[in-house]
Design a protein around this nucleic acid. Structure first.
Length: 415
RNA sequence: GAGGAUGUAGCUCAGAUGGUGGUAGCGUCAGGUUGUGGCCCUGAAGGUCGUGGGUUCGAGUCCCAUCAUUCUCCCCA
């Protein structure tokens, strides 16, 4: 037997119903905030992600599904995220010549070669939003408010918003230096991987879960202490805005994010109780990204939300149950003439917009009744040879267990 | 990439210290007399005990390998 590939998932109808529900909420909320849908290709030139996400990131260095195209003319990569593709598309179509701000959302699958785990798979689904053109903290607040709105409309509880600022190109280097200096003084106490990160990505030290590192990180200089005047004000204003919008948040100096394009604001919505991968939604500002991909100097803010993590949290909170569609009518038929009649009636009802079923298995009446009950049919129409002759059939109410005679011709559903 | 856990029918699982024909429940299908559901009863189908080696007179049960799943580190949604 050929099995599915590690880290991928089959979504059967019972679960697909939930996915569709959640996606509908996302689409509705996005529309309320003025975001329009954008769809981009599943694969892109590898270079797009190397430049967009950042050459030194784990995503680019060891997680991309990269291959050479059949004609060997180029290197292609299955998208590991969708922000860079969106920017590419907008630059390519000259969209930034249109009035700003511009707001887009997407729902699609991404691919990363990682070790699968609770809340982490190799193909995963993201709902993401991007807002371009505004450098104002109101734009950051808009993005966060949209994420917040989606999560709360889904009914999720115990999701906390963590925000931080990692500064801009003018103040981040100074912070980086301060951080390295601090940790260098305590280098011996750091865990092995953090000692390496000291060179490669010192910001990540703040994120480590090792007890010793956590203790050191608690005393480390904070990004927010080293921000330039502009970044500091931006961050302060964002806090005020969130408060005025009645969106609870905590300032968390440990939120740093692993994609290179982030500047200033970074944030995560964290859901407890779904395992180690608890960030249900993460994002931030990326003021340099558009220009770095060949577009104009246009700032942006956005986030990505992991559908499967949202579902994990919903399941854990017992709000993931969805009813399967049940037919309004099931036609139990005995004999070929009755089955033919039943098929015709069902087809007519379906054209009228009703969900109706009839027997396709040529089973006994008893078996058909059992089946009708199992699929939750509201009514069952019983049609046998007698009914074909008289033109009168039995309509059984499956909830009240009552039956009435009805005319087969021009049969209509009750109510 | 590195650790830990698990792998018996579609699903959830029994199978003490290795020993006569592999459980059970749910689900599926068929019945419980003459054309009728939900409860109950009966029966049937369905398993290379993940796979391959090894130890042994004998392995689902022990050992090794391998694959898969899962959790964690890492990273991120």
């Amino acid at each position: 037997m050929i099995q599915k590939i590690k880290g991928t998932m089959d979504i059967l109808p019972a679960e697909a119903v939930l996915f569709r529900d959640i996606e509908a909420v996302m689409r509705e909320q996005a529309a309320l905030y003025g975001y329009g849908e954008i769809r981009t290709p599943t694969f892109e030139n590898t270079e797009l992600f190397v430049r967009g996400v950042g050459e030194g990131t784990d995503v680019v260095q060891k997680e991309m599904y990269t291959f050479v195209d059949r004609d060997e003319s180029r290197s292609i990569t299955l998208r590991p995220e969708i922000t860079a593709p969106v920017v590419r598309a907008l630059v390519e179509h000259g969209c930034f010549a249109e009035p700003l701000p511009q707001k887009y959302y997407y729902i699609g699958s991404c691919f990363r070669h990682e070790a699968p785990q609770a809340g982490r798979s190799r193909e995963f689904f993201q709902f993401g939003t991007e807002l371009f053109g505004s450098a104002a903290p109101e734009a950051d607040a808009t993005a966060i408010a949209l994420g917040h709105a989606v999560l709360s409309r889904l009914g999720l509880r115990d999701v906390t918003l963590h925000i931080n600022s990692i500064g801009c190109p003018s103040c981040r280097p100074a912070y980086r230096r301060a951080l390295v200096d601090y940790f260098l003084a305590h280098e011996a106490k750091l865990c092995e991987s953090c000692q390496k990160r000291l060179q490669s990505n010192p910001l990540r030290l703040l994120d480590c879960k090792n007890a010793a590192c956590v203790a050191l990180a608690a005393q480390a200089p904070r990004t927010t202490d080293c921000l330039c005047a502009g970044c500091a004000e931006h961050h302060a204003t964002l806090g005020q805005l969130l408060t005025e919008m009645e969106i609870p948040y905590t300032r968390d100096p440990h939120i740093v994010r692993g994609l290179d394009y982030y500047t200033k604001t970074v944030f995560e919505f964290i859901a407890e109780g779904i395992g180690a991968q608890s960030t249900v939604c993460g994002g931030g500002r990326y003021d340099g990204l558009v220009a770095s991909l060949g577009g104009p100097e246009v700032p942006g803010v956005g986030f990505a939300m992991g559908l499967t993590r949202v579902i994990l949290a919903m399941r854990q909170q017992g709000i993931a149950d969805r009813a399967q569609p049940a037919p309004a009518l099931y036609i139990a038929a005995l004999g070929d003439p009755a089955r033919h009649k039943g098929a015709a009636i069902v087809e007519r009802l379906r054209r009228q917009g009703y969900y109706a079923e009839c027997d396709l298995m040529a089973r006994s009446l008893k078996a058909q009744m059992k089946y009708a009950n199992k699929i939750g049919a509201r009514y069952t129409l019983i049609v046998g040879e007698r009914e074909i002759e008289t033109g009168q059939a039995q309509l059984r109410d499956m909830v009240n267990s009552t039956q009435t005679a009805v005319a087969l011709d021009r049969f209509t559903l009750p109510e």
